[in-house]
Amino acid sequence: MLTAILIMALGAVILGAALGYASIKFKVEGNPLVEKIDAILPQTQCGQCGYPGCKPYAEAIAEGEADINRCPPGGMEGVRKLADLLGREVKPLDAEEKPKQVAIIDEQLCIGCTLCIQACPVDAIVGAAKQMHTIVESLCTGCELCVKPCPVECIRMEPIPEKIDNWKWKYPVFEIKPVRRAA
């Protein structure tokens, strides 16, 4: 009887120690769901969802505070992926879906105030005080955050044109023709 109790107790101690060690050794930092949600978000850091960046929005979704349809750059596809991941209902997007855009500075008008540089979340604008600024197109995420701060309204958004490099084969669609029946 005593041996049995001792064996069980010993087992409990060993397993407890193993579990305790594992919980320290393999501790998961942060919420892993947030990472997964963040990986789906387009990382434009535009704040159109009402959160200051993609990560905070991902956190809010994980907490259940925010809806999954508030990311316009992610589009319906993003909503669908989030719904898949979280097991939620697919909802129509909370805003209209826009094609991918890029910001362009009218360099004739730019006064070199650096306000857009401060606003750009991904450091895609090059320039210095009282010097002309310009946007590094390949880095621009099209978040539109630089448009508002500009005091001389010299920044405009332009949809990215289709070029050979980003051209895609279209989904095969075939015209459906009505069948003509002999009268």
Binding site: P42, Q45, V122, A124, L139
Partner: peptide, 9 residues
């Protein structure tokens, strides 16, 4: 591109 933007952000 999203990964690069995230890294820069």
């Amino acid at each position: 591109q999203a990964d690069a933007a995230k890294a820069r952000f």
